[in-house]
Design a protein around this nucleic acid. Sequence first.
DNA 1: CTTTTTAGTGTACAACTGTTCACAAATGTA
DNA 2: TACATTTGTGAACAGTTGTACACTAAAAAG
Lengths: 211, 211
Amino acid sequence: MMSREAKKNLTRRALMDAALNLVGEGENFARISLREVAKNAGVVPTSFYRHFRDMEELGLNIVDDLGMLLRKLMRSARQADNYLEDLTQKSIDTYADFVVRHQNHFYFMCQCRTGGTPALRNAIRQELRFFANELAADICQQPSLAKVSQEDLELIAQHIVATVAETTIDLLDLAGTQRNFRHDYTKQLQKKLRLIWLGARVWRSHRQENV
Amino acid sequence: MMSREAKKNLTRRALMDAALNLVGEGENFARISLREVAKNAGVVPTSFYRHFRDMEELGLNIVDDLGMLLRKLMRSARQADNYLEDLTQKSIDTYADFVVRHQNHFYFMCQCRTGGTPALRNAIRQELRFFANELAADICQQPSLAKVSQEDLELIAQHIVATVAETTIDLLDLAGTQRNFRHDYTKQLQKKLRLIWLGARVWRSHRQENV
DNA sequence: CTTTTTAGTGTACAACTGTTCACAAATGTA
DNA sequence: TACATTTGTGAACAGTTGTACACTAAAAAG
C-alpha cells in the first residue's frame, strides 16, 4: 500500500501531465477545461479541487516544474567544459535536445509566456530572469567582457535568454515535420547569438554614442 | 440611408473591435467566445456567421489589420530623416507611441504570436517577416554593413524585429501602471538594439570563427 | 480498538457554448 | 412596379462548462 500523501502526489502529477499532454497535442492552455484535464487524468472533475483551486494554479505549478527543468539544463550545461566558448554551437545542440525531450513543458512555456494570464506570464518571466542571471554570473568571467558593467551584463544575458526562448516555438513547430530543419534552426540561432556576442565584445558601458 | 455593403462593413468592424476590446481588457483571445463578441458588438450571435466562419477567421482578419498598421508605422518612420541613424532612440519612441495608441492590436499580436492557433501564429509571423524585409532593404544601404551578405542582413533585420516584438508585451503590461516605466523600457530596448547594431558592424559573412 | 481526516466519487444545477433553422425587413435589380 | 438577395433576428438544440453538496472508503491519529 502507498501512503496517502504519495497517492495524492500521484494524481497531482497525473493532472499536471494531462494538461501538459493536451498542450503538447496542440491545445491552447487558456482554453483547456478543468473537466478535460480531470478526464485525461482518469479522475472525476470534483477531485481536481483537492489539488488546485483552478486551472491557473495548476499552470503556476507547471511553471515550477519548468523552473526545475531549467536549473537541470543549466547544471548539465555547466558540466560541459567551456560551454561558454562554444556558446553558439554545442550549447545550442544541448538546448535543442533538451527542448525536444521535454517538449510539452516548452510548448507550455512558449504559449503562456506572452499568452497566459498576467500571473502566469509573470511567473515564467521570473524563471527566465533567474536563468539569465545564472548565465550572467558565468559570462562575467570572460576576459573579453571586462569593460561591461554588471548591469549591462545582466541585460545582455537577458537578451540572450529571450532570443533563445523566442525561437523555441519554431524549433517545436517544425522539429517534428520538416526533415533537417533542426540543422537550419541551429544555424540561425547560432548566428543570432554570435551577433549578440560580437556586440557584447565591442560594448563599452557608460558610453553615450548613437548608432 | 447607407448601402447594404457599407452597413455590413460596419457590423463587421463592430465584431472585430469587440474582440479587440476584450483582448485589450485582458481577456485571452483563445477563450473569447463567439457569443461574447457578438454581444459586445450589439448583434445577435447568429449574425456572426454572416461575416466570419469562426473566431479563427476573425482573428486572421485582425492580423490583416495589424499588417496595415505595421505598414503605416514603417511609412511614418521612413518619413523621419535618417531614422536608421538613431534607430535606437527616436525610432523606439515612435514605436512606443504607436503601440500605446493601438494597444488592442498589439496585445492581440503579443498574445497570438506564440499562443494562437497554428494558422494565426503563421499569419503573424508572416507579417513580422514582411516588416523585417522592409527594414533589411533600408539598412542594407548603410556603409558600415557593406561586408554583410544579403542573407545575413535579413537575419539581422529579423532579429531586430523579433527583439522589438518580444519586449512589446512588457511595454503594454507596465505602461499603464508603473509611472516612468516607459523611460526604462525605452532605455533597455535601446541597449539591446545597440548591442545588435554593434554586432552587425563587426559582422563578417562567410566567417567560420566561434565565439 | 475507535475516531478523525481526507482523497476521490456521484449527482445535480445553472450558465454558457457553437450551430441550425425558419423568418422578417431592408436593399438591390428588373 | 414586382421579384430576388441578403443582413440581421429569435427560438431552439445538444453539449460542455465550473462548482456545490452529500457521500464512501481508506489512511492517519488517538
